[in-house]
Design a protein around this nucleic acid. Sequence first.
DNA 1: GCCAATTGCTTGAAGCCTAAAGAAATTCGA
DNA 2: TCGAATTTCTTTAGGCTTCAAGCAATTGGC
Lengths: 163, 163
Amino acid sequence: MLDSETKAVETPEDHAEELRLWLRLLTCTTLIEGEVRGRLRERFDVTLPRFDLMAQLDKAPDGMTLSDVSKRMMVSNGNVTGLVERLVESGHLDRRTSDTDRRVQVIRLTKLGRAEFRKMAAEHETWIADIFADLSPKDVRELMRLLAKTKSSAQKSAGRRKA
Amino acid sequence: MLDSETKAVETPEDHAEELRLWLRLLTCTTLIEGEVRGRLRERFDVTLPRFDLMAQLDKAPDGMTLSDVSKRMMVSNGNVTGLVERLVESGHLDRRTSDTDRRVQVIRLTKLGRAEFRKMAAEHETWIADIFADLSPKDVRELMRLLAKTKSSAQKSAGRRKA
DNA sequence: GCCAATTGCTTGAAGCCTAAAGAAATTCGA
DNA sequence: TCGAATTTCTTTAGGCTTCAAGCAATTGGC
């Protein structure tokens, strides 16, 4: 009794399984991300961050503020500033200052931007389907469920840190 | 009959589920990566790529070549060159040219590098445990299994592209 | 109405990362 | 053994990314 309690306190807990899980998760994402990045470059000569940003805007016909984009993409503000700059420069994005708050920049896809994105997105979807081809519909559902659980667990942990 | 066949051909297949799965996978990874990056910086003032590189070397007491590291970390050669440069500079890595092949650079952790890494790794493991805390052992096993399947499916797809 | 705090964005410094081209060493086929 | 192909690593150009500091506009308490 005493022994087992002592042991429970002294022995550092073994979290090797969770560590392995994290590494595998990271490997999968890196692998897929690299694949998608490569195909986007080959087929459309576009970078992944540019594609991701356009994807966000495609879902928001009325535009988004830079802060919205930053939160959605989970990247820093400064990062978005630079990305938007280059996409405005290339004619894919339209940017204007909000009428009601002069701090706020609202960005939208231009006609060109939307057209190009739609073309890319259609093909992109087939790549993703190919990448996940070996997973059954049941596998997909189950992964969705477990990743949802993972996400909320990670968010809770992040909350604990900041608090 | 004919109708359903016709429809099967004309209707673009719906891969929305796979797409959602990919986005969720990416969200999880980004979330956890950001959390780990932040903690490494706060606690040890070290970057995630540096930590990852040291983790590879910790598992290889006899050292690794830059190519090995590049493959393991799934990053470009040039990336490794720069990372190693900075870690040698800070005294964490030792680097020497192979005796048998003068193209090859063998890198190892220095005593300092190993000591610092071990300290960081111990704490890192507890962060990961905390991040995945809501997952049961069964969840972990099941995720491991499904991610293994995902990885091999993605690799197969990548192979199809290059071939 | 005033002023402190907050919010939205930009800037700057540093580092990370890729793709592509190139240099040096090795390997291997003829 | 010669030379072509390959391998290992570095370099370069460009872009991505973060963090921290800072500016401008707005908000909220008083």
